[in-house]
Amino acid sequence: MKPAPFEYYVPRSLDEALALLAEHGYDAKPLAGGQSLVPAMNFRLAQPAVLVDLNNLADLAGIMADGEGGLRIGAMTRQRAVERSPLVAQRAPLLAETLPYIAHPQIRNRGTVGGSLAHNDPAAELPAVALALDARMRVRKQDGERVVAASDFFLGIFTTALEPDELLTEIVFPPLPPRSGVAFEEMARRHGDYALVGCAARVTLAENGKVSDSRLVFFSVGDGPVQAVAAAKTLRGQRPGPAAMRASAEAASQEIDPPSDIHASADFRRHLAQVLARRALTRAVDRASALR
């Protein structure tokens, strides 16, 4: 199919883009990599009256070091660039580990980091990773800027804290605390398809080797990235042996409320969540322990 008719703008500056968004409000949709929006338009699931194409805004793309161990990624940075960046591998290994799971190389060549985060598909990997890493979203509008924490950014299915006149311009990944390890797991019926279940884990160890902090974020199990808060808490203060991790993973799988569809039942997703969470936590702990 072909999309419904729409007006199309190619702003040459961020200010111009923000002005267009301010002018058209809810009628407008920013176009980043187009890997979700364009198919949705072709199926007429989305029918924006105005498209604001961000692809000429070179300033919005780029990967930069941020202070001691942090990272800043422009919203229009292609996913493939993030995947291949040595700086990302060094400063945000969770991102580097996750990127190859996102669809296929052809899609990552076009798809952007900001586009995926702003779209907030419940089956998308990047929102879960952003939440696991306590990312901060830099958001601009015509007469202002604000920074939104990941935990306040993802509000529900395809919904974020962005107002229609706002644009996500940059994502800041703060440095991980010392003795932290991360890991990512997902399972799909077919490589590159939406995951049946996926999860991102982050574990920080205290000097005595016990868990001081942990984070477990699932995707494809709810309305967006789903943090298993209670399950992560059960690990805190524990020595991270196999039993503790199994218990935490088990608790996590009970904490989520996954959907059923043609590819997997809720029960099966719950089972997978427990298996993947245990594996991710185990790997994260191994990595954290290696840093002690």
Binding site: R189, R190, H191, G192, D193, I262, H263
Partner: peptide
């Protein structure tokens, strides 16, 4: 999208 056939990665 619901009847899945293997891709080159499967």
């Amino acid at each position: 999208s619901t009847y899945l056939i293997p891709t080159v990665r499967d």
